[in-house]
Design a protein around this nucleic acid. Sequence first.
DNA 1: GACTATAATGAGAATCACTCCCATCCTCAA
DNA 2: TTGAGGATGGGAGTGATTCTCATTATAGTC
Lengths: 150, 150
Amino acid sequence: MADHHHAADDLHATVTSLLRADEQRYTANRRALIEALAEAASPLALPELLERRPALPQSSVYRNLAVLERVGAVHRLASSDEFARFELSEALTGHHHHLICSGCGRVEDFTVPPRLERTLDRALEEAARSAGFEPERHQLDLVGRCADCR
Amino acid sequence: MADHHHAADDLHATVTSLLRADEQRYTANRRALIEALAEAASPLALPELLERRPALPQSSVYRNLAVLERVGAVHRLASSDEFARFELSEALTGHHHHLICSGCGRVEDFTVPPRLERTLDRALEEAARSAGFEPERHQLDLVGRCADCR
DNA sequence: GACTATAATGAGAATCACTCCCATCCTCAA
DNA sequence: TTGAGGATGGGAGTGATTCTCATTATAGTC
């Protein structure tokens, strides 16, 4: 078994099959979006995406982000400022959390120890059950001031 | 010491002093908003607020929510659907978390054991420090399907 | 390689939650 | 009472996002 195939190949293969499952094509525009999000490694607002891929028309970016979100390749998060932000879904990046700057809206990823993650999940399942919710995923963010906004 | 004063009196007294500190008045409109949010006990979107207080004009509601947020009496949360939602700030209600329904956007409150809360805070402080963030508050949500949206 | 059904594209129009404007009203202190 | 500044609310404005639709690209099929 080859241990050395590129992670990027896996990424694109996974996105392809996610799209296929919904009879969607992995077009050049969609690939460009996935690559931009993979390069950034933290959630991007639309203007940031357009800066990084100036050839992409705004309307196509919005449409394709919606498609990629529907098939589970991209996750949209509503930030505190006026822009939605987009990142690769946890199916592609692994589970993680966000540091959100209350000054500028910047978002960075972080993780917590697996042990804490498990404890958290148990507590959340308990809370969900007693409210009649069926748990899907959790979301743990820390809001603060980034180094630039101190 | 009187243990039996109404919680509502405390609430309004606290809001009054929060507003005073910013030289703002606790007007009838603002009181109506605070009461609507206190009655609901879970975050409300603007249409829900207007349903509950039909006499309030939309523009005043938006303006007053912004004022109440600035002085720390109200907290605005960006939900996944198209509406922002508003709740009393944790200074007034105590620390809590949210169950968010991915179907209808409904939000309910829950709490986790204090012990877990402390563990969480330590882990988050650690993550913040190593990214150069100054922690302000954390936010833990569980996204799932409510009983109606199963 | 041509043919075709269907998906994808992109420029601009439309939507709509939210904010701003401003003439008028209210509150409070002197 | 009076006056000065805060508060009000109806309506106009803003801007991120979505929709429209004529055109173009794609993947099978022959």
